[in-house]
């Protein structure tokens, strides 16, 4: 209990730090919402040229985009900071974290609570609501459950990808942008129907890494459409399991990474 209060206090301190640069905070807030708006806008623009992409029409595609974008925004808000790990490793800030009586990962995440990223979650969820309205969903209890679980599972999955990508810095401090290929790349991948991708690329991202279960399969299950790629209908409901699997892997990778840091230093 005391530990929880410590984390709450840490979070509060970060919020106050952010507000101490009021002008920057506002601009970054606007900028962050802008980034999410542009992601959705891109989909709308592409649909100006055609009425179907990969066999899906605009409302259907928008459903996938919005599940991804609300889940990603949530993950980025909660753990997106972790991609600064390489800076912390290089600057030795991690040492200061390790001499405190709290877990290392939560401390790192709370070192800069990005309040500015909050509005993106709101925007993502709004688009999701609009997309659900545009589609003719045949609501069943299972689908109601799925529509709440899908963005959360997406957030857990994306958050795990964030942690795994960032952990790379424990072994390779100069890993630079390579993590974004999987975090931001994964988000872009999952924003479109995965039918658009070539078989090898799709095999890697969608099934080997699991990005198919972020938005594509849940969206099919919500829409009641059979998967043109042949997975059964229940695959959409597997997304929480895939997310838990990813979180497990992320935890293990992080633990091994910290041990690696301990044995090599910076």
């Amino acid at each position: 209990m005391g530990e929880l209060r410590a984390y709450v206090a840490l979070a509060g301190a970060q919020a106050r730090s952010a507000f101490s640069y009021r002008a920057s905070f506002l601009i970054e807030l606007v900028g962050n919402v802008g980034a999410t708006v542009f992601d959705v806008l891109s989909v709308l623009v592409l649909f100006r040229a055609t009425d179907r992409i990969g066999g899906f029409d605009l409302p259907e595609a928008l459903l996938m985009t919005s599940i991804t974008s609300s889940g990603f925004a949530l993950a980025d808000f909660a753990v997106g900071n972790v991609d600064r790990l390489k800076t912390y490793v290089r600057a030795g800030t991690l040492d200061a974290v390790l001499v405190r009586p709290l877990g290392a990962l939560p401390q790192l995440l709370l070192m800069d609570l990005p309040m500015r990223k909050m509005l993106r979650v709101v925007f993502g969820v709004t688009v999701l609501a609009v997309a659900l309205g545009l589609n003719d969903v045949d609501w069943t209890p299972a689908r109601v459950l799925l529509v709440t679980l899908a963005p959360l599972s997406c957030a857990v999955f994306m958050g795990s990808i964030f942690v795994i990508s960032a952990s790379l810095a424990f072994w390779w401090v100069e890993s630079g942008e390579i993590g974004s290929a999987f975090t931001y790349g994964g988000r872009d991948f999952a924003s479109y129907p995965i039918t658009v991708y070539g078989p090898a690329f799709r095999g890697l991202f969608a099934y080997a890494l699991g990005f198919a279960f972020v938005a594509y399969q849940p969206a099919l299950a919500l829409l009641g459409r059979p998967d043109p790629l042949g997975l059964p209908a229940w695959a959409g409901f597997a997304s929480p399991l895939v997310a838990i699997g990813a979180a497990t892997v992320a935890t293990i990778v992080w633990r091994i990474g910290i041990r690696q840091y301990r044995s090599t230093g910076s």
């Binding site: 301190a13 106050r16 730090s17 101490s20 640069y21 200061a96």
Partner: peptide, 27 residues
């Protein structure tokens, strides 16, 4: 622990807030 070359304090907050925060962290 005091590291002379790196700070343990919260850069953007008044000093007393850092102290208050440490009270929570160390319970």
């Amino acid at each position: 622990v005091v590291f002379g070359q790196r700070s343990q304090l919260w850069w953007d907050l008044p000093l007393h807030e850092s102290f208050a925060l440490l009270r929570h962290i160390y319970r």
